[in-house]
């Protein structure tokens, strides 16, 4: 059976706005499959985003969708979850939105361990504004604002999330499509802040400036650099040079924020 994605998509909203070959659509399909496998009730599911290409995703989903301001998705989502903990709260967004302008909200959502699932679609660039470098653009890469090559070091988003206190952190790629839904679903089921970083491609504003001849080249790169965590354990540092670990990178159980606050309420009420 063909997968029925359209039951979760608002009627008349396809085709989406993303460019030919952009991996965002592949990730959106993974997200829909994950939402299905978790049997989410879309009436009680908020999907929150900031600004950028990836942040247009919520508009397609037939849920309670909140397209906010640049970088602020995690903070809006925190307000939704705090006020109505019974809702499932998902955040989607890009690398620039989440870790540059939204970096502060991102790390503090991780620190609080509030039960939101944050999907970062990391395509290493600001796509919507035409290809300026982001905190995740590789050093030396070309972007519209790095005409001599990018002088900046990069963030490792997953490491950032682990360091900031997220209790579930996983990484996948837009190439490894069957893994995307499994990682997101595990993140949704996890009680606490879950960060799912999906390495993605932007053929329009990154690929063409950085010697990728086609969309397929970019997909093949994702295939080549990904090494599952288990396989990496058996590899030498030399073999791991230039590779990126994928799968569940970190998981711990720690009290979730809205549950902690429920205890504050109980104390205040003299329980």
């Amino acid at each position: 059976m063909a997968y029925d994605y359209e039951k979760s998509i608002r009627p008349g909203k396809l085709p989406h706005i993303w460019c030919p070959g952009c991996g965002h659509g592949i990730i959106m399909k993974g997200l829909i499959r994950a939402m299905d496998s978790c049997e989410l009730d879309l009436k009680n599911t908020a999907v929150v985003s900031g600004i950028g290409c990836a942040s247009r995703l919520p508009g397609y989903l037939d849920a309670c969708t909140l397209h906010t301001a640049h970088g602020r998705a995690a903070a809006f989502a925190t307000g939704v979850k705090m006020a109505k903990p019974e809702m499932t709260v998902l955040v989607v967004g890009g690398d620039g939105d989440g870790t540059a302008i939204g970096g502060n909200h991102f790390i503090h959502a991780c620190r609080r361990n509030i039960d939101i699932t944050y999907i970062v679609m990391n395509n290493n660039i600001y796509g919507m504004t035409g290809g300026q470098f982001s905190p995740c653009t590789p050093t030396g890469a070309m972007a519209s604002t790095t005409p001599y090559g990018n002088p900046d070091p990069t963030f490792d988003i997953s490491k950032l999330a682990i360091g900031a206190g997220a209790t579930f952190v996983a990484r996948g790629t837009a190439f490894h499509a069957t893994q995307i839904d499994k990682l997101i679903a595990e993140g949704i089921r996890h009680k606490g802040t879950a960060v799912i970083e999906i390495l993605d491609d932007c053929p329009t504003t990154y690929g063409r400036r950085n010697k990728f001849r086609s969309v397929v080249d970019m997909m093949k790169r994702l295939k080549d650099i990904a090494v599952p965590v288990a396989a990496a354990a058996k590899m030498t540092p030399e073999q791991l040079e230039g590779k990126v670990l994928t799968g569940v990178l970190y998981k711990e159980e720690r009290p979730e924020y809205t549950e902690q606050y429920a205890q504050v309420i109980a104390k205040a009420q003299g329980a």
Partner: peptide, 14 residues
């Protein structure tokens, strides 16, 4: 193809 199509443009029936 269905899994990888970013544009929801392919459906495969077994």
């Amino acid at each position: 193809c269905e899994l990888r199509c970013p544009d929801f443009a392919i459906k495969v029936e077994k």
